[in-house]
Write a protein that binds this DNA or RNA. Structure first.
Lengths: 125, 125
DNA sequence: ATAAAGCCTCACACCGACGTGAGGGTCAAG
DNA sequence: CTTGACCCTCACGTCGGTGTGAGGCTTTAT
């Protein structure tokens, strides 16, 4: 599939997809015309990339992580390098902490929002 | 208290504190010498600012939120403007979504980390 | 008095993911 | 053949929070 289609399917901009390739996160084949040729698996791969980005990992790190995840990513892994393990452990801790902070922020926001329309309970999501 | 002390107490850089003032998040008094003079409450205020930053709010939004929180922020609020309520609601949804994504990312990371040192359980934080 | 430390105001640098536009090929439809 | 849609590669712009350095005050300690 070509880049436009992948963009449409994933909801990610064309620019971003090119950027992902530039960062080594995607390695599409190339047609004789120079066009990128993405596989069907790349749809999932892009989803995982986005997920990890949203977790605050930078692309260099995502690249290593994805190197440990095979094709559809549903189950298997290769051996993670020891350095990577250390880094990911740090990242893991950061994520846990960040989730806590987000929870706290939510409390703050809900206080404000609660004040907005009186003492009645805020619509729970 | 002067900026250096506040920086030390909050763990936030001097540069950032000046930036917060520039964004209207802090309004320190000024001594005759031009030095900023922060109040004791500002320590809490800075903590809240950091919290909201980590939740992904930009300073313009934080400024409005803090406008609804009185002194020590422990309980009360002023009336939030209706526009602000709408924005915060959006932000709230984003945060909830983001927490979900972080949780998913955690699962991905734990899979990798689980593969790192064999089938034994991962050290639970 | 003199040095050291803390403060001040610009104002430019940086990072990371992405927008955007220029300039130019490729390809299917009319 | 031409139009229009899609693709390509640079390469610079943006945004937000922060680092950093210049140039110059005030205050504190010796």
């Amino acid at each position: 599939m070509r880049i436009g289609e992948l963009a449409e399917r994933t909801g990610v901009s064309i620019r971003s997809l090119r950027y992902y390739e530039e960062q080594g996160l995607l390695k599409p084949a190339r047609g004789a015309n120079g066009y990128r040729d993405f596989s069907a698996e790349d749809v999932n791969r892009v989803a995982r990339i986005q997920l990890l980005y949203s977790a605050g990992l930078r692309s260099s790190c995502i690249s290593e992580v994805l190197g440990c995840v095979s094709g559809d990513g549903s189950e298997p892994y290769a051996e993670p390098a020891p350095d990577l393990v250390a880094e990911l452990t740090t990242v893991r801790e950061r994520i846990v902490r960040q989730m806590g902070e987000l929870g706290d922020s939510l409390v703050v926001l809900d206080r404000i929002l609660g004040a907005a329309h009186g003492p009645a309970g805020v619509g729970r999501s």
